[in-house]
Amino acid sequence: MNRLLNFGVYCWSWIATLGVFLVVGLLLSYLLAQGLPTIGKELFFGDAPAWEAIFGQVRVWDALWPACVGTLFLVLLATLLAVPIGISSGIYLACFAPKSFKRVLSLLVELLAGTPSIVMGLFGFAFILFLRNTFFPDANTSLLLAAACLALLILPYLIFTTQAALESLSDEYRLIGPSLGFSQIQTVFHVLLPAAGRGILSGVVLSIGRAAEDTAVIMLTGVIANAGLPQGLFGKFEALPFRIFYLAAEYQTPAELDSAYGTALVLLCLTGMLYGGALALHKTLELRWNQHG
């Protein structure tokens, strides 16, 4: 009986793993089949000459380039806003927070994690309305507002993964710092954080992916279909997920729908590149911790 059960569990794990591979494989191959033929100069720059378009000397219409730049800026800005706050909060929760306060804080972070992204967008939108009616009549939805709302959305991932990575270190490991006469801050930054680096990195990767794909937040906070390259922090912008959304929803010709697949493929690659960047940054930091006295 026991052996049968073991065999059953074994088989089921295999099937489940295979299922994941199958689903991801299917998705990717479908996306590649539909999207790859559309990838080319025209998808990115339309009728505009490539070099001039890249440097913003000519305006690009009905093509991807402004949305690529928009998404890249948006994700970088949101990550830049969220990572320092998220990681610091995680450190506070894991290493410094008094027990009772920690419970309250964790509840608040869970609440934030459970907030649907459309609500986050609505919050940003309402905030702009408030500013317009009070101190800044000229306030408008913009890249900065969208990035700030996205930062709120990804904050819980960063906090939870940092906290979990730090708390999973063994008690003996935590005591190395104090036993050698390190101050608490030195222990956190020179012993605990580097050892928790891999876990924290996974949080950063997760939040990059989340920030890159979210459409609901940016729809209410500053994305528009034909903004061109982002004109600074307070300007409107284009973004890849929003472009996929409206191409798929309002396509006029089959070719337009195909270009949505192409856009999805580009979004996937862009996210992959950002992951790569995060990984490279982590490797550099780890190497520095490892080797330099």
Binding site: E172, L175, I176, P194, A195, W289, N290, Q291, H292, G293
Partner: peptide
């Protein structure tokens, strides 16, 4: 409980 870094470090 060595630190997971190089021997010298």
């Amino acid at each position: 409980n060595v630190l997971p870094v190089s021997i010298a470090q």
